[in-house]
Computed example of a mutant assay.
Amino acid sequence: MAANFGAANSSKPKVRVDGWKKPKCGWQLCQDSLEGYVGVVIRDQNGAFVAAANEKLEICYDVSTAEAIFVRFGLNLARTVGCSKVEVNLDNVEMISALKEGYSSSLAIAIFDDCYFLSLDFSHILFEHCFRENNKVAHE
């Protein structure tokens, strides 16, 4: 985590060009265990580091559920460190629409409800789409 903090907080971030590569045809990289991880970095309006945290998801059935858990985790962290105005950037357009409209038809509807009620704790909150290509520093 310290290495990730150093890379993300660098004034001269480098774009990572050698990321994940798919396995050879007929090979499997690893068995799907339905586990995952979420990680959140909070920065201020100047881009300075405020807080970061990560957490293991013991089970995750689909992408929408994982994204909803990620948003809930991030909102809880923002609330814990005392943020009052929050901008949530995600690369999942479907998730952004659901958060803005306050409704989702996915399996994660209860988690969306949690996100909605958590969002009421902030004086201002924005849910914005961020293209994955714009977020390469996070993958350093």
Rank of each mutant, 00 (worst) to 15 (best):
2 A>P: 07
3 A>E: 14
6 G>M: 13
7 A>G: 08
9 N>V: 14
12 K>F: 06
14 K>G: 03
15 V>K: 04
16 R>L: 09
17 V>D: 14
19 G>A: 03
19 G>N: 05
20 W>S: 01
22 K>N: 06
23 P>H: 01
23 P>Q: 00
24 K>N: 06
25 C>V: 12
26 G>Q: 05
26 G>K: 04
32 D>T: 01
32 D>G: 01
34 L>F: 09
34 L>H: 15
34 L>R: 15
35 E>M: 13
36 G>N: 06
37 Y>M: 15
38 V>Q: 12
39 G>V: 02
40 V>P: 00
41 V>A: 03
45 Q>E: 14
47 G>R: 10
48 A>M: 06
48 A>K: 12
49 F>W: 13
50 V>M: 11
52 A>R: 05
55 E>T: 12
56 K>N: 08
57 L>H: 12
58 E>K: 06
61 Y>V: 03
62 D>S: 05
65 T>Q: 14
65 T>V: 02
66 A>W: 01
67 E>Y: 01
68 A>G: 05
69 I>A: 10
69 I>R: 12
70 F>N: 15
71 V>D: 09
71 V>L: 11
71 V>R: 00
72 R>T: 03
73 F>H: 13
73 F>K: 08
75 L>F: 08
76 N>I: 04
78 A>E: 08
78 A>I: 14
79 R>N: 15
79 R>E: 15
80 T>V: 02
81 V>P: 00
82 G>K: 11
82 G>E: 01
83 C>Q: 06
85 K>S: 13
86 V>T: 05
86 V>L: 14
87 E>Y: 02
88 V>Y: 07
89 N>A: 04
90 L>P: 00
90 L>T: 08
92 N>P: 00
94 E>K: 02
95 M>H: 03
95 M>P: 05
95 M>T: 14
96 I>C: 08
97 S>Y: 09
98 A>D: 14
99 L>V: 06
101 E>H: 04
101 E>P: 00
103 Y>W: 07
105 S>H: 05
105 S>F: 05
106 S>W: 10
106 S>C: 10
108 A>T: 01
110 A>E: 13
110 A>F: 02
111 I>M: 09
111 I>F: 00
112 F>S: 04
112 F>V: 06
114 D>K: 02
116 Y>P: 00
119 S>R: 10
122 F>A: 05
122 F>M: 11
122 F>P: 03
122 F>Q: 07
123 S>C: 11
123 S>P: 01
123 S>F: 03
124 H>R: 09
124 H>I: 13
125 I>W: 11
128 E>H: 03
129 H>D: 13
131 F>T: 11
132 R>T: 14
132 R>Y: 07
134 N>R: 01
136 K>A: 02
137 V>R: 12
139 H>C: 05
139 H>N: 10
140 E>Q: 08
